[in-house]
Deep mutational scan, measured.
Amino acid sequence: MASDGVVVEIGKVTGSVGTTVEIPVYFRGVPSKGIANCDFVFRYDPNVLEIIGIDPGDIIVDPNPTKSFDTAIYPDRKIIVFLFAEDSGTGAYAITKDGVFAKIRATVKSSAPGYITFDEVGGFADNDLVEQKVSFIDGGVNVGNATPTKGATPTNTATPTK
């Protein structure tokens, strides 16, 4: 695992066909100046998982989280898009600690492993708008004895992609 920078880890949970599971997305290594904004994309298989919603985690402190935390689910493109932009203008609602960034709610549709993997990152910046190093650890849903650990090695991303 990367020793510096922010680590975004997609949790690994267990479920069975027809059940709804909650998959946490963790941030670790949050910089001392916090995270003022970030955007990134995960990939998944809508034939295996139906993403039914995404909720902000406990490290989102904006009293009205829909102003700073936004997501979009595109089953036709097989992606989930995340956007966080601190909304106070003063840094008061920045992410300042490690913990759960988001909770992905999904219904298991198939007995195949439900991988959720890193696809791309736009950027991560602290309260001074300084770009942060970030790496990703894939996860998803274990169905029966299947284990979604494909790509469990962190993917280092030093520069934003478009």
Rank of each mutant, 00 (worst) to 15 (best):
S110P: 12
A106F: 12
G151K: 14
G89D: 01
S111A: 08
K103P: 14
P113T: 03
K67V: 09
S16F: 11
K67E: 04
G151P: 12
F124P: 00
P75T: 03
M1V: 13
F40H: 08
K133I: 06
I104Q: 03
C38T: 03
T14I: 05
T90W: 14
G29P: 12
N47D: 11
G5E: 07
E86Y: 00
N37Y: 01
D70S: 14
T157H: 12
I51H: 06
S135R: 10
I116A: 05
F40V: 02
T71W: 02
A85Y: 15
A92H: 11
T149L: 13
R28Q: 03
V143M: 08
D87R: 15
Y26H: 08
V100N: 06
Y26M: 15
K150C: 12
Y115L: 08
A102E: 04
S3V: 03
G140Y: 09
T90G: 15
Y44H: 05
Y115E: 06
A92C: 06
A112N: 05
F124M: 03
G99Q: 14
L49N: 15
V17N: 15
G34I: 03
E131S: 04
G122T: 00
I10W: 01
G11D: 14
T107I: 06
S88P: 02
D62N: 13
G57L: 13
T14C: 14
D4I: 14
V81I: 10
D58E: 15
I59K: 14
E9P: 12
D55A: 11
V130I: 10
F82R: 00
T147V: 12
K33Q: 03
N37T: 00
G89S: 02
F40Y: 10
T153P: 12
I23Q: 12
I137H: 12
V8P: 05
N47Y: 04
V143T: 11
F69L: 01
V100L: 05
Y74A: 00
F101I: 10
D126I: 00
A125G: 03
K150W: 15
G34K: 05
D55W: 14
D98W: 04
V6A: 04
K78L: 03
A36T: 03
P65D: 15
V7H: 09
V141F: 14
Q132R: 08
V17Y: 14
T147R: 10
Y26N: 14
G53Q: 05
K97R: 09
E50N: 11
V13N: 07
S3N: 02
G34F: 04
I116W: 02
I52Y: 10
T90E: 02
G122A: 00
G140V: 12
D76P: 06
T66Y: 15
G15L: 07
L129G: 01
A158T: 08
N47T: 05
T153D: 12
Y44Q: 06
I59S: 12
S88R: 07
E86G: 01
D76F: 02
T157W: 13
G34R: 05
G18A: 10
K162N: 05
G91K: 15
Y26K: 04
D70M: 15
E22Y: 06
P160C: 09
F82T: 01
D76L: 02
T19N: 14
D76E: 03
I52F: 07
A146I: 12
V130F: 09
V61Q: 12
G89C: 03
T66S: 07
K150E: 11
V48G: 04
A102F: 07
D58I: 12
D98V: 04
N37P: 00
K12A: 07
A125P: 00
G140P: 13
G5Q: 15
A158D: 08
D76S: 04
E50F: 09
V48L: 07
P160W: 05
L49V: 04
T19I: 06
V61Y: 09
I10H: 09
G139M: 05
T19K: 13
V121D: 15
L129Y: 15
S110N: 05
F69D: 02
A72F: 00
A106R: 00
G114M: 06
D62M: 15
F84V: 01
T66D: 04
T19D: 08
I116Q: 12
P31E: 04
K150T: 10
S32Q: 07
A92W: 15
V7E: 06
V8Y: 00
D87H: 15
D45Y: 05
K33N: 11
D87Y: 15
P148A: 06
G99N: 14
A36W: 00
I60P: 11
R105V: 14
C38N: 14
V7F: 08
N145M: 07
Y74R: 00
V108W: 05
G5R: 11
V8G: 07
D138H: 10
G18H: 10
V8A: 05
T159N: 14
T159V: 11
V81K: 01
E50R: 07
G11Y: 04
A152L: 12
T71R: 05
S16G: 08
S111H: 13
G123N: 00
I23C: 11
F42S: 07
P65E: 14
I80V: 04
V25M: 01
F136H: 12
I60V: 09
P56T: 10
P160M: 07
I59E: 04
N127T: 02
I52A: 08
D4H: 04
Y93R: 15
I23N: 03
E9S: 07
A152P: 12
I35W: 01
N156V: 10
T161R: 10
G11I: 05
V48C: 05
S32Y: 10
A85V: 14
K150G: 08
D55S: 07
P31G: 14
G29I: 14
F82W: 13
S32T: 10
G29Q: 13
T117Y: 08
S111R: 10
V7A: 10
I35Y: 02
